Each structure stands twice: as structure tokens, then as C-alpha cells.
Simulated assay, not measured.
Amino acid sequence: MIRYPSLNEGTTIGVTAPSSGVKVELHGLLRLSFNRMEMQGFNVVCGETIWTQNKAKSSPAKVRAIELNKMMRDDQIGIIIPPWGGELLIEILEYLDFDNFKSKWILGYSDTSVLLLAITLKTGIATAHGTNLIDLRGDFSDNTTAMWQSVLSTKTGESIIQYSSEKYQKEWKHSDPSPCIFHLTEQTYWKAIQNTNIKIQGRLLGGCIDVIRHLFGTPFGDVQHFQKNHLNNEPVLWYLENCELSTTDLRRSLVQMKLAGWFDNCSGLLFGRSDANQPIDNYTAEDIYKELYEELQVPIIYDIDCGHVPPQMTFINGAYAEIEVKDGRGSVKQSFKH
């Protein structure tokens, strides 16, 4: 059984940094983000960890864990949104008080996806893979990003549909800010191995493969136990995105996922766009997808709106999803089923 939090109007957003905090020279980005959230009717409560960053983390692991544990127990906080990802979130997992976590949304991506996946696998509480707080500081959000509020406001038993973006961002232009943060210039086109038109369904799980792969073989990555105890052995539909892995490292990681049993009882795989997918010795990401298809015999869709090449949809770990791709356009229907 999956437990779905619900986003209520005017709720309080807890902002903590379970991975990276924000250096002093970028504190203005945080304040802009807070102002934007408050203009939308939310209250904002800040932790201490968000204001500091040193040695590739916001603060020591136990300090980060204590702050997150406190926010997860606080009835006044309805959703937690970290400023952004980082590198070393995995350090805090052993100090988290999973048994006493209240049912509330956590939203983010990149290194945050380690926390999201671990919480859903350990507790059965749904978590939200989507935008981070810093990317919500603009005057407005593009239609794809802006769906986070509608998705997280969906009630248990209800469904919501998101559609693929019209355009995506090819490169970050931090020196040239735009009213909606992203510069969406390239035509979005979802692709699939074998068939151009495809439908798949299953329970969503996933995140940034660079970091969630480190959950293999740990108490925080027991997919089989989760499937049996929370999903009644329904198949998993994996969504994955590659931040920085070389093409060969991506292949190694996916083979490891397979050998670890994460792809047992899997209905398909979805891959986000990635700048890291550069060929090595003529070996491309598309080659990897074709090999996976031959090995797993499940549908594989790629270049979807997920990850470090924005914009991105909001994917709910644990939700029942129906994905359809037709002539490069995609739709994602998520049902909040127990």
C-alpha cells in the first residue's frame, strides 16, 4: 500500500539542505525563491543548513539528518523542498528516523532523488521527483514545471495527466536570466526503441542514476521487499536520468541494476534527456537502450522531460502510471492508487 501526501493551499514549505546548501554569494537566489512561494500563498520555514556550504555539503551528516527529521515530524510543515541537489546526501540515510516520518511531500531531483527513493522504498510514502526550489524563483514557470502544484494536490484515488513539453533547454545561461529561469529553445521529441507509438503502465520508481545506484545492496534499496509489501507485486516502471555518467559508466550502472534484481518484474524504462550521453568509441546511449531492450524485453522510452535538461515533469514514486508516446509527443497519467 502506498501512502500519498496531499498539498494543501497555503501550507508551510520546509526548506532544508539534506545535500548541498547555498553559498553566501547566492543567498539572493534563496530569497527570491521564498518571495515567489509566499506570493503564491505558501508560508516558508527555513532550516539552518540551507545557508552554508563547505566540503561538498551543507553541513555534517548528523546535522543535516537532525534538521530533516525535525521537519518530517513537524505537523505545521506540509511539504519539504530542498534548494537543490548536491553530492553527498547518501551520508545522512543511516541517521534518518524513517519510522516517525509523517506523510508529507518531499520534492526535488538530482542528489535529492536518493532521499526520495529511500523514503518510498522504506516507508511506502510517495515522494515527488521534480523541480527544485531555486528553479521556482522566476516571475513565472513554464507549463511543464508549473504542474508540480497540480500533481501534488491530487487526492488519493484520483488521477492527473501531464503532457510532454513543447521545447526544452539546450544550455544554462546563468548570465542571461529570463522571467521563467529556463531558456526553452529546442523541440521536444520523445523517442522509443522499436515502436514510435507505445503505451506502458506500472508503478513509478526512479531518479538520478548517478546517485540512486549507490543504494544497491543497502537497507535503503530493497526493491523486492517494497514490491512485495507495498505494491502487491505489481510491476515497476523505472524512470532514470543521467547527470554526469559517461556512456560506459551508464552501461555498467544499468547492468548492475539488472544484476541487483531491480529490473525483475519491470514493465518498462523511461530515460530523461542528458548532456552526459556523449559517444565513447562509437558507443552511444541509444546503443545502451537497444541492448537493454534486447536483454529485458520491455518497452524503453527516452529523451523524456526528466532531469538535468529542463523542463521536467513531476513523477511520483509509488504512483500507478500510464505512459503513452505517439509521434514524439508524450503523456503521463498518474493515478494515486493504494
Rank of each mutant, 00 (worst) to 15 (best):
I288V: 13
Q149H: 06
I81R: 02
E186R: 00
A260V: 13
C180P: 03
N143T: 13
N69C: 01
S175P: 13
F271N: 14
E244M: 15
L184Q: 05
L7Q: 06
D139P: 12
L88N: 10
T120M: 04
L68K: 04
S19Y: 01
F101E: 11
A65V: 11
C180E: 13
W262A: 13
C306M: 09
N242M: 05
L68A: 12
I134H: 11
G78Y: 04
L240P: 02
I13V: 07
I90V: 05
I119W: 11
W84T: 07
L245H: 09
Q53E: 10
G14F: 02
E94V: 00
D281E: 11
L116Y: 02
G268K: 06
L259V: 00
W51G: 07
W262M: 10
K199I: 14
G206D: 15
S274G: 09
F182D: 12
R137H: 14
F216L: 03
L116D: 09
R252P: 04
W238C: 04
S331Y: 08
F216A: 09
V44Q: 01
T112H: 10
T145Q: 15
Q224N: 14
R329S: 04
K102F: 10
C266F: 00
P235T: 13
I316E: 04
R252V: 03
P219W: 12
Y293D: 14
Q149C: 15
F336R: 00
I2V: 05
G28M: 08
L26T: 04
G330W: 00
L32W: 04
M72Q: 06
D264V: 13
F101C: 08
V151L: 02
V325G: 09
I280K: 09
T247Y: 06
S175I: 12
D275P: 07
I92Q: 15
K333V: 00
S159C: 13
G330L: 00
F216G: 12
Y239C: 10
Q278L: 13
I81T: 15
S178W: 11
I316P: 07
Y4P: 02
K333G: 02
D74M: 15
S164H: 06
G217L: 00
K57F: 13
I81Q: 02
N232E: 09
A192Y: 07
I79Y: 08
N242L: 01
S175L: 11
H174D: 04
K55I: 05
S20G: 07
I212M: 04
N8Y: 07
S159M: 07
